[in-house]
Structure formats: C-alpha cells, structure tokens
C-alpha cells in the first residue's frame, strides 16, 4: 500500500540543511524563523528525528513528502510510500543492484540508503528517465532494441546503472562496461545484450 503522501512545495535551494530545517519544523519547531542563525540551527538540529515524521524527497524533479520513520530506506520510500515501483527490491542488502537509482547524479543502492538522509538531494528513478510525453531515454531505447532484458525485473536498476556508467566515463570498451556493470545482477543473463545496448546508447547520450 502506498503510504500517505502529501505534495510539498518545490524547494528552490534543495540543500540538505534546508531540508533539515524543514524536517525540524515538522517535528514541532514550526515557530523557528525561516532563516536560522547558526546557533538557532544547531538547536534545531540537535533534536532527533524520531518515530514517524515528514520526510521530503525530491524525486524526478518533484518534491514529495511522506510520513515515515527514520528506518525507512529510500527504496521502500519509493516503492511502498510513493508507489514508484520501478525501482526493484531483489535482495535488500546491496547485493544485486535492482534498486539502483541516481542520487545527485551518482548511482547508489537505494536499499542501503535511508530516506531521511536523502532529503535535499536530487533522486532520479527509472520513472524519471523518459522525456515527458513518453519519448524513451536513449539507454531505454537501446535496451529495447538489443533485448537487454528478459523478465525485466533487474532492468530499471540496470538502466539507471548504465546511464551512470556512461556519464562516469566507464563505457569506453566492452570489457570496461562489463566490469562497471557487474554490480547489477541479471539472472536471465542478458549480459551480452546489456553490454551492446550501453555501447550503442553511449553514442547517443551526448
């Protein structure tokens, strides 16, 4: 069941501190002025985030707030609270890569990332990759063309990882792609096709 969600205003700054202030505010410090001095901020931050609180996540360009405990991982926040089920849970321990998303442009395992720590960061999931209107990202199109998947369960993680792999500059050769994509298991074993897709999409990602 998707958790209760409320739309939150887009944060123009998006910095972590701003979000902590916000979180603090939700914790009952609503009287704190919008612009805190250093001392005041420390007071606010010394308050713990405990139990259910509002956590604001900027996912695919939109800030959304959930009510959740600090133990909620980014993956579960996406899947169970925001109903963004494109990011997959394959192992929940950083051992398969199916949950890969981009946080501030870096690929990470969202299953080992806390939602509360992801506030103020740009989170990109598979749902945010295609253009509005549905035009596929070149990596998505290449996966489709090269049959870089079978069951499709690891695919969102593969594609997010692949986009980062290219952006990092780790798609220079077949061997390099294979090594740098090894954090994404594919049990159907579409590996040769995944590799081919990445090498092709690289040329179109600009």
């Amino acid at each position: 069941m998707p958790g209760p969600t409320t739309p939150a205003p887009l944060n123009p700054d998006g910095s972590r501190r701003t979000f902590m202030k916000q979180a603090g505010g939700f914790l009952g410090l609503a009287l704190a002025p919008p612009f805190l001095s250093q001392a005041e901020r420390l007071t606010a931050l010394s308050k713990k985030v405990e139990g259910v609180s509002t956590i604001s996540l900027k996912v695919n360009g939109t800030v959304r707030a959930i009510r959740a405990e600090p133990r909620v991982t980014l993956l579960d926040a996406l899947r169970e609270y925001l109903d963004l089920t494109g990011s997959k849970k394959g192992c929940d321990h950083g051992q398969c890569g199916a949950c890969t998303v981009l946080v501030d442009g870096r690929r990470v395992n969202s299953c080992l990332t806390l939602a509360v720590m992801s506030q103020g960061k740009e989170i990109t999931t598979i749902e945010g990759l295609a253009k509005e209107g549905g035009e596929l990202h070149p990596m998505q199109a290449a996966f489709l063309k090269h049959d870089g998947f079978q069951c499709g369960y690891c695919t969102p993680g593969q594609i997010m990882s692949a986009v980062a792999c290219v952006q990092e500059g780790h798609a220079g050769s077949e061997a390099e792609v294979r090594e740098w994509m090894s954090g994404n298991l594919c049990r159907c074993s579409a590996y040769p096709n995944i590799t081919a897709a990445i090498l092709e999409a690289k040329g179109q990602m600009g």
Binding site: M1, A130, L136, F143, D147, I159
Partner: peptide
C-alpha cells in the same frame, strides 16, 4: 522487439508485490 519492453524499460511494468490495492 518485445511488446512488453516499453513497460519494462520505463518501470511501468508492475510485478506481483507492486500491484496497488
């Protein structure tokens, strides 16, 4: 190309634990 491919590469394909009820 797989006809279910677009749903799979965009994350739109919902697997059993992802059905929203």
């Amino acid at each position: 190309d797989r006809v279910d491919g677009p749903a799979k590469v965009t994350g739109a394909a919902r697997y059993s634990a992802e059905i929203s009820v």
